[in-house]
Each structure stands twice: as C-alpha cells, then as structure tokens.
C-alpha cells in the first residue's frame, strides 16, 4: 500500500512538473490546448480588410479560427492530436501546416505531406503563414497575333508545300539560281577532285598497283 501511495505521489509530482513546463503553451485545462499563429497578408493586398475574408480551418472546419487586425489567430480548446491547419482566402493560396499536440501538450508543426506521411519537415511554431501566390482561376483569353497565325501548324502545313510547289520551279527558271546551282554542282565536282587525281596517279603509276587499288576500292565498296 505504501508503495502504491509513493508511486502515486511520484506520478503526481511528475505531472505537476510537466504542467509547470507546459504553462507557456497556455493550457486551458481538461487537456485542451490552443493553436496559435500569425497570418501574413499578401503583399499587394487591396484596401478592403483581408482579415474578414481569411479563415483558419482546422481539420476541414472542425475548428475554425478568425484572424485579428494584426494577423494573429488563436484556435482555442483543441484536444491533443494531429491537425491540419489551413488558411483560406478566396484569392491567395497559403500552404497548409500539420500541427501535432501530444498528450503532454507539446507542439510540433510540420509540412503537410499526404504521400509520405512519416516524413517530417518541421516549421516553426507558433505558426507563421505567408501567402504563396495568387490563385489563377481563369484562362487567359487568346489574342489574335500574326505570329500565332503564321506558326499555326495548319498554316505552316499549307504554306510550306505551296512554297515548294510554286517557288522552287520558279527558282529553277531563274538564271541566277541556275548559276548558283551550277556552282554548287561544281563544288560537288570539286569534292570529287581528289579522288580523280588519285585515279590519275594510280593510272600513271602502273597496272599492278592499279589492280591492287581497284581491289582496295572494291573492298571499300564492300565495306560501304
């Protein structure tokens, strides 16, 4: 009996110490806690008070908090557990945060990760929540632009063959391009030149080697 009493006493003192430690967490009693944080408004905020439109939902509206003038919010009377805190604003996106309160009243805030639920990336508590971006709800109306029209695949499909059909034959008729083409073909011949010279040299050097070279050429051909 004495032992039990002493154990009880020890437990009592221990819990007292714990509650003393947790005083700063603002314990309300009956294991009810308060989630605290501050919401930072979007920078390009409008004149109307953004605090009215901003709501704090815990676990999808199980607990609801409201934002004060300075952006702070408190959600009272939350029992220990794991909660997703969302800041809802019609125009701005905030990242949700998971707040975990253990049975001793310790707080831990981390990023919400629904896929790897065990992954912990801590964020500071009391929460400090900043608007990420403005929601883009709308499609941007396409404006008629010449470049869009020209680079439209359909138009390209139509125009390019037209070019090939109409312009190429005309270019063929054009004397300048003819010369151009000739030059190009000359160039092509030029590229043949060294081979020809080789042929000549082989011709002059003698039949045997020529045969050998011919065989070589054949080999080359085969390789090709």
């Amino acid at each position: 009996m004495k032992q039990i009493l002493s154990i009880l006493f020890a437990v009592c003192t221990f819990s007292e110490v714990l509650s003393a430690v947790n005083l700063q967490e603002e314990e309300v009693g009956n294991g009810r806690y308060s989630i605290e944080g501050k919401v930072f408004p979007p920078e390009e905020q409008d004149l109307l008070p953004w605090q009215v439109d901003t709501r704090v939902h815990v676990n999808g509206g199980e607990y609801i908090g409201f934002v004060r003038d300075d952006g702070t919010f408190v959600i009272h009377n939350v029992p220990s557990g794991s909660y997703v805190v969302e800041i809802l604003h019609p125009d701005y996106m905030y990242e949700p945060v998971r707040v975990e309160i253990n049975s001793k009243g310790k707080f831990r805030a981390r990023k919400v990760n629904y896929i790897q639920t065990s992954q912990v990336i801590q964020v500071p508590y009391p929460l400090r929540l900043k608007a990420l971006t403005k929601y883009r709800y709308f499609q941007v109306r396409e404006q008629w632009r010449l470049t869009d029209f020209l680079f439209n695949p359909m138009v390209i499909m139509m125009v390019l063959p037209l070019l090939f059909i109409m312009i190429l034959p005309k270019m063929m008729n054009d004397p300048e391009t003819k010369e151009d083409l000739k030059q190009i073909s000359n160039l092509a011949k030029m590229s043949d030149m060294p081979e020809m010279s080789e042929m000549f040299t082989s011709l002059f050097s003698g039949g045997a080697t020529a045969k050998a070279s011919a065989a070589k050429a054949k080999q080359v051909k085969k390789r090709q």
């Binding site: 009956n30 308060s34 009215v52 409201f66 003038d69 009272h76």
Partner: peptide, 22 residues
C-alpha cells in the same frame, strides 16, 4: 462549455478580442 467570447468590429467584421471560458 468551453465557451468562446469574441468581440468584433461592427463596421469591418474583424475580430477584436477573443477569450475562452471553461
């Protein structure tokens, strides 16, 4: 129980004060 006492600005609707009571 627990109760929440809140005060609101009547013009804007912004929360002014809030305290809990058990």
């Amino acid at each position: 129980n627990p109760y929440l006492v809140r005060g609101w600005n009547s013009a804007t609707g912004v929360l002014q004060f809030e305290w809990s009571l058990t």
